[in-house]
Amino acid sequence: MNNGSPESTGSSTEREATGGSPRTYRDLWAVAGILAFCAGAYAITLTFETVPDAIAQGLQPAGFPQLVIMTMAALALFVGWESRAGSTDAPDPVDRIVYRTSLLMIAVLPVLIWVDFFIAITLATFAMGWLWGERRLVGLAVYSVLQTIIIFIIFSTILRVHFPHGILVDFLT
């Protein structure tokens, strides 16, 4: 396991040994993405209202964000310039489990809103555990339910948080 010890060599050396793709490729893509974001954000600042100087107190509402965006763009260009040396690691491909976990987290949202908050978090715990390879399903189910009960007691009963209406929420509160 690579724990960052002095002997760790990192992935770049491994890739160089296997003749992988150039390291700068994705860094430049990231820089292009940042510059596009800056251009879009700057365009939005042009739509901000202009106020009289007496109210602006030295700086128009768009002034500070524009300053920050320009600094960000200049720094991004510097990152691009830095990456010419080819010393930046290109990240490994995203593992399929990351997409699945992300999809699961997004899929939980409609259940949270339209079905029930507590049912959603119970299902999310169970589904994520299963997705990550847990096969002790009874234990996982018991854990998911117990966790939801504890969260209900802490947040709903003690902290008096009002959760969105749902089958269980309406029944319990």
Binding site: M105, V108, L112, I121, A124, T125, F126, M128, G129, W132, G133, E134, L140, Y143, S144, Q147, I151, F155
Partner: peptide, 13 residues
């Protein structure tokens, strides 16, 4: 497999 689903739930709640 037990720890990180709990982190997700705590983050949401």
């Amino acid at each position: 497999t037990f720890l990180w689903p709990t982190v997700f739930v705590l983050a949401v709640v």
